[in-house]
Amino acid sequence: MKEITFSKRNTILILLTILLTGAGILLIGRFAPQPVASEPTLSPDQVAAEEAVIEGTQAFFHIRSEVGKDAWLEHFCSLSTESGCAFIEMGADRLWKKYTEAKTSIQATVKVVEQVSATATEQVWKVNVSLSEPLPGSNKTQEEAYVLAMKTDTGWKFDRFLLEPEIQALIERQQKENKP
């Protein structure tokens, strides 16, 4: 049997290497980014619809009476579906009469809470809307809304806000689905 001999110098080098390697592992472990609670990755359709929901809702509540209804509609319609634009356009005169009288100047911040429903062509998102000040006839600056985004030829677009009975039905459906 062949005898392996270590010189004193080599022994010190080996020990130093082991020591440095161990210290390195410890340091990397301490400073490396900690794994966070895993979040489901959004699909491209979800990302696009989420963006459409946020932009459309912000455009809808970005009201500056001095700029006027037409400019507001033009901006909103550039972010909404054609039919969603026609829907709002139909009632815009009466809505804006109120805003003009009250000299409304409001901005909105929209945060997505969750996706509530999704098909290949429709997605409903629950969002939290914060207004810079209350709208005429309201004293609230924060409210949840359920927004429908539709897939169009030019991508996902804001379509409309869901109505109260539609929201109630969605919530009930979610509660039933979450029951064990």
Partner: peptide, 18 residues
């Protein structure tokens, strides 16, 4: 019956306008 509570697709409402 209240039909509003039985929909699972919602885009048709605005499309009616066209």
């Amino acid at each position: 019956e209240n039909a509003w509570t039985w929909f699972s697709g919602w885009g048709f409402i605005t499309k009616l306008l066209s």
